[in-house]
Amino acid sequence: MKSGSNLEKVLVHGDFAVTGELGPPQSNDREVIVKKAKAYKGYVDAVNITDNQTAIVRMSSIAACAIVAGLGLDPVMQMTCRDRNRIAMQSDILGASALGIKNILCLTGDHQSFGNHPTSKNVYDIDSIQLISMVKGMRDDKKFLNGEEMKSEPRMFIGAAANPFADPFEYRVVRLAKKVAAGADFIQTQAVFDVPRFKRWMEMVRDRGLHERVYILAGVIPVKSAGAMRYMKNDVPGMSVPDELVRRMEQASDPKEEGIRICVETILQLREIEGVSGIHLMPIMWESVAPIIVERAGLLPRPEY
């Protein structure tokens, strides 16, 4: 075991993994985290906590992860390259490990112009691939990025993102291969609505044998309304949503139920694809739907190790 995290155990054991995303509040309210995390308990293998997503200031991922770990859940700490330089990142990785956090998701980060501090200065001292390599160096070689040795290593299960729907399409698998070579243990993809395109991407992944070197968790988002589906289609960068899904949501008498149905159908299709090791649920502002989806997709009970 590289980290001994629950997520790692589930994946290594060959179970189809389920992770859930949790967005911290724009406040110091611990109870928000506790409530959201408890809703996930028993339904997911790990809770993935965002790092000031869409560049909006929220409670730090590291603090929220520590709260979640205290509840007996396995947190995945997201870390973006937008807000910290290599000094702060390594410091936070050491601190996270000391707080019992065993999974990290290395991300580029949404540009600050999307958020609520658009006049801020971004950092991007290192990029997400260099971050993966840095964490791996800390864990496996007990070395800081500058080559200096450390006494005890942060044992992190290293995750990275992949977006099969962004461009240039041809380069997407090359970028995945770079992430795997840099040291990614698992991959979390952008939300899949366009299953055919995802399947094409997975073919390219398998052609390079990458599915045997990294665990791939396919992202899914349950959508509440036709408006939300249209928003995903038109306004979220790097997202591909088929017209058919927009139509289904528009024509549904119960859009929430239709959203759940679409999400469950998608999971069932993803599960059939060779090389997909699990799903990552992103119920944006709708965490309470997670148990329903996990149950209806036949993913219960979750394994215990």
Partner: peptide
């Protein structure tokens, strides 16, 4: 590149444009 990335385009590159604005060409494209 809006994020000065050295190892390829981020997940926000679409149709040759940057996630920041449709007026910005994705440098990595």
């Amino acid at each position: 590149c809006s994020k000065s990335l050295l190892n390829g385009p981020c997940g926000g590159s679409q149709n040759g444009k940057c996630e920041v604005s449709k007026d910005i060409d994705c440098a990595w494209q």
